[in-house]
């Protein structure tokens, strides 16, 4: 019998398959829906200080089943109204992780404090959205700012703090190290990869914002490399993100060093039922491999392997 329970930063999750931020996370009913569908944890949409409409459409470009490009522009109802959404999910028993974004350490700290008061089990810091001016990866690409934000948030809250790292940097593990040195309890990696679509006939970018972030199976190899390298440089747990759609994808991330994973774009391909399917497939696959707990596999790919 495979035990899928997973502990990250001292918090117990019923399985390692979390709903990624930005997917089904604007409303409490949807977070509840993802939980009811079997997710081990649900990460909220990234919430800011004020309501934010996001960019005009087109905000999405799709590429069959291998990828998706988006520039939503961090739409969110704002921290004042969002607690009522979290309450809907929490009262259904969901393990909720609250994602926040801000323009500087003070704003992050204030938001994290208000988010923590809603009863979320952990805070995830969006240091990695690739398409919002002065926010996300514009802060997260600077290790000094990563350090300042994490340190300020750690002073503001008692619950675990997860830093979500951008892949759009020449030395991704350095960003994770900066977060760890400032006291982060875990690393989420990766957010989307900066990308763009251009229409030949119209001779213009497809997305209203111009550039956006690529997600889906196309970026799984990027995510794996980042998780692998981060695992070699930090001691805190890693949550792997990027292109997960099958049980083997999950196992690959575990072997690279992730303790848990997040699933996002695959929800658009398959519906929210993907959590149930992944949970069943993962149990079956681990049993076939003679593995009793996911913990046995975390980082196992590194033992006896050469440096990446």
């Amino acid at each position: 019998m495979v035990d899928l329970r997973t502990t990250v930063a001292g918090i117990s999750f019923r399985n390692p398959l979390w709903l990624a931020s930005g997917i089904w996370g604007e409303s409490g009913n949807s977070l509840k829906g993802a939980w009811d569908a079997g997710a081990g944890g649900v990460v909220t949409k990234s919430i800011g200080s004020e309501p934010r409409l996001g960019y005009p459409n087109p905000t999405i470009e799709t590429y069959d089943k291998w990828g998706m490009l988006n520039a939503m522009g961090l739409p969110n109802p704002g921290i004042a109204e969002y607690p009522q959404e979290i309450e809907v999910a929490r009262s259904a028993g969901a393990t909720v992780i609250g994602s926040v974004f801000g323009a500087d350490a003070d704003e992050f700290a204030a938001l994290a404090g208000r988010m923590a008061a809603t009863g979320v089990v952990a805070i995830e810091l969006n240091l990695s959205c690739p398409h919002a001016k002065g926010l996300g990866s514009e802060i997260g690409q600077d290790p000094d700012q990563v350090r300042d934000v994490v340190a300020a948030v750690k002073r503001a809250v008692r619950i675990p703090v997860i830093a979500k790292i951008t892949p759009n940097h020449y030395d991704v593990p350095m960003l994770a190290e900066a977060a760890e040195n400032a006291g982060a309890d875990a690393i989420s990696a990766i957010n989307t990869v900066r990308a763009m679509a251009v229409d030949v006939r119209l001779r213009r970018p497809v997305l209203a914002h111009g550039s956006g972030g690529l997600s889906g199976p196309a970026i799984k190899p990027v995510g794996l490399a980042c998780v692998w390298q981060i695992y070699e440089r930090v001691k805190i747990p890693i949550i792997g993100i990027g292109g997960i759609i099958s049980a083997d994808d999950v196992i690959e991330y575990l072997l690279a060093g992730a303790r848990a994973v997040q699933v996002g774009t695959a929800v658009a391909f398959e519906g929210i039922g993907i959590f149930h399917r992944l949970r069943e497939d993962l149990s079956t696959r681990l049993a076939a491999l003679g593995v009793a707990t996911t913990g046995e596999l975390v980082g196992a790919g590194h033992r006896g392997a050469g440096a990446a």
């Binding site: 089904w24 604007e26 949409k45 999405i60 988006n70 939503m72 739409p75 929800v267 658009a268």
Partner: peptide
Amino acid sequence: KCALGMCD
């Protein structure tokens, strides 16, 4: 926005 059952 997405029309794909993703963005909420």
